[in-house]
């Protein structure tokens, strides 16, 4: 639209492209770097500079990593790490959506004693992130025997106010007429939810799902606290263990492969579900 009144001059447009390309290079470079590193032999990695194009060891490295290489460094196979992380990420995403929809449904479409008190109790949890109550929460986990369990990794992270607030906000925009029409037709709470509310919420659910999956996949402090056994680690925690025990023998090529495997699934989700992701991000925060 260079012809417009406030149109961008040709020079300024070129400058914009140059800056954007530069920005993209900086933003994408760290991920590209580790991906390239994962395709080179250990010897190449340890002799900088790293070639900027993928190397010949791709298949070799990945085959070794998957077939026991990572097991030798971290004491647990990469398949188990990816499985753990997927279970945690999906568990948090589904769990959060289910319980926050249920409570938002109760708050908006029913009247019951202490309704507003319940709402505030949920709302205030916004102000109590894990980071400010690390030790006592850990003690609760020990008392309940939830250390090294999937429940321990998932449950404490599925109650947060943001998703509930989002659904409450959305449910309140459903016109009364729609609700009453459904009631006249004899719909009960379950029927109304299943046939009317759920289909209307589909976009919101998809958007929230992307955000929550990323949130679950990238958790750090919580898995660090509640997993002692290597076999319950998420891939992020396992990676950190590999690096903190690094010495002259660390097979950096396999560490790079693990790094790529830890980054790839959430990046793919964000890129492929970009539309939902942007919507979810911009709307959950407002």
């Amino acid at each position: 639209m260079a012809e417009g009144l406030v149109g961008t001059s040709r020079r300024s447009l070129t400058l914009a492209h140059v800056l954007l390309i530069l920005g993209c290079v900086i933003v994408a470079f760290p991920i590209y770097y580790v991906t390239v590193a994962s395709t080179h032999s250990l010897r190449t990695i340890l002799n900088p500079p790293l070639p900027m194009l993928p190397g010949p060891e791709t298949i070799e490295n990945y085959r070794e990593a998957v077939s026991g290489g990572i097991n030798r460094i971290g004491g647990v196979g990469v398949d188990r790490l990816l499985l753990n992380t997927t279970i945690v990420a999906l568990g948090i995403a589904f769990g959060k959506i289910v319980i926050s929809m249920a409570s938002a449904y109760a708050i908006v479409f029913f009247r019951f004693p202490l309704r507003m008190v319940c709402f505030w109790l949920i709302f205030i949890t916004l102000m109590l992130p894990v980071e400010v109550r690390i030790l006592p929460t850990y003690k609760v986990m020990v008392d309940l025997g939830l250390i090294d369990t999937y429940a321990g990794l998932i449950l404490p992270l599925i109650a947060s106010a943001t998703a509930t607030l989002l659904f409450r906000q959305f449910f309140m925009t459903i016109p009364n007429e729609l609700f009453e029409a459904a009631r006249v037709d004899g719909a009960g709470p379950w029927r109304f939810f299943k046939d009317i509310l759920l289909p209307l919420s589909a976009t919101n659910i998809a958007a929230l799902f992307v955000i929550l999956f990323i949130y679950g996949w990238t958790q750090y402090l919580w898995p660090l606290l509640v997993t002692n056994s290597n076999s319950m680690n998420t891939i992020v925690i396992a990676l950190r263990k590999m690096i903190s025990f690094a010495d002259a023998d660390t097979p950096w090529d396999l560490v790079m492969v693990t790094c790529v495997l830890a980054i790839l699934p959430p990046v793919l989700i964000v890129v492929l579900m970009q539309r939902w992701f942007v919507k979810g991000l911009v709307e959950t925060e407002k």
Partner: peptide, 27 residues
């Protein structure tokens, strides 16, 4: 291209920068 880093866990973001700027083998 700009949204990639969002999907990277903070801890891994730290490791990526450490790899790139590692005094012994970071390019």
């Amino acid at each position: 291209l700009m949204i990639w880093p969002y999907a990277v866990a903070p801890a891994i973001a730290g490791m990526l920068w450490l790899f790139m700027f590692n005094p012994s083998f970071g390019t």
